[in-house]
C-alpha cells in the first residue's frame, strides 16, 4: 500500500507537521509532497501518481473561503471531483482520491483523515489489473 499526499503549505502541511510534533502514530505507508496551493495539483499529477503505482492519493487544502489565493481551492475541488468521475468510469474508483479541505489544518485532524483514508483503502480491491498492464 502506498499513499501519496499533496498537502498545501498553508493548511495541510501544517497539519502534517503538527501530527509529527505530537508524535501521533500513523500508518507508515504515506509520503507527503508540499505544494503552494491545492489548486496547483493538476489532475494529471494525480493520474500520474496512480500510474506509478499509488494505492491512494490525497489532496489536502484549506477551508473553502480560507484559501490564501482567493478562490483557488474551489477550482481545485471542481477539477478533482470531475476527475473522480473518470476514475470511477475506468474502475479505479473515485474513492482512491481523497479531497479534503479545511479538516487537515490541525495535527489530530490530519492524523484522523490519514487514518480513515488508510482504513478505507485497505477494504478496496487491488489495482493489479492496471499495474500488470504497465
Amino acid at each position: 500500500m502506498k499513499i501519496l499526499i499533496f498537502a498545501c503549505k498553508w493548511c495541510g502541511l501544517i497539519g502534517a507537521d503538527g501530527a509529527g510534533k505530537k508524535r501521533i502514530q500513523l500508518p507508515p505507508e504515506f509520503r507527503v509532497i508540499a505544494v503552494e496551493c491545492a489548486a496547483l495539483v493538476e489532475p494529471d499529477a494525480v493520474i500520474r501518481a496512480f500510474a506509478s503505482g499509488m494505492t491512494g492519493v490525497a489532496v489536502l487544502g484549506c477551508h473553502l473561503g480560507g484559501c490564501r489565493f482567493n478562490d483557488a481551492n474551489h477550482a481545485a475541488i471542481k477539477r478533482l471531483e470531475l476527475l473522480k468521475t473518470l476514475l470511477d468510469a475506468t474502475g479505479i474508483g473515485g474513492k482512491r482520491l481523497l479531497i479534503s479541505f479545511g479538516t487537515a489544518h490541525e495535527g489530530y485532524q490530519y492524523a484522523e483523515v490519514v487514518k480513515t483514508f488508510f482504513e478505507e483503502l485497505k477494504t478496496m480491491p487491488s489495482t493489479v489489473a492496471w499495474t500488470a498492464s504497465l
Binding site: 494529471d44 493520474i47 496512480f50 500510474a51 470531475l82 476527475l83 473518470l86 475506468t90 492496471w130
Partner: peptide, 25 residues
C-alpha cells in the same frame, strides 16, 4: 515527464486518462 515516450503499448493510465481528462469539459 507525463507519459513515458518510446514505449508501446502506451503507458495505459497516464496516456489515456490524461488525454481523456484534458477533454473532460
Amino acid at each position: 515527464v507525463w507519459v513515458e515516450t518510446g514505449v508501446i503499448p502506451a503507458e495505459v493510465l497516464s496516456y489515456h486518462l490524461i488525454r481523456a481528462f484534458h477533454l473532460s469539459d
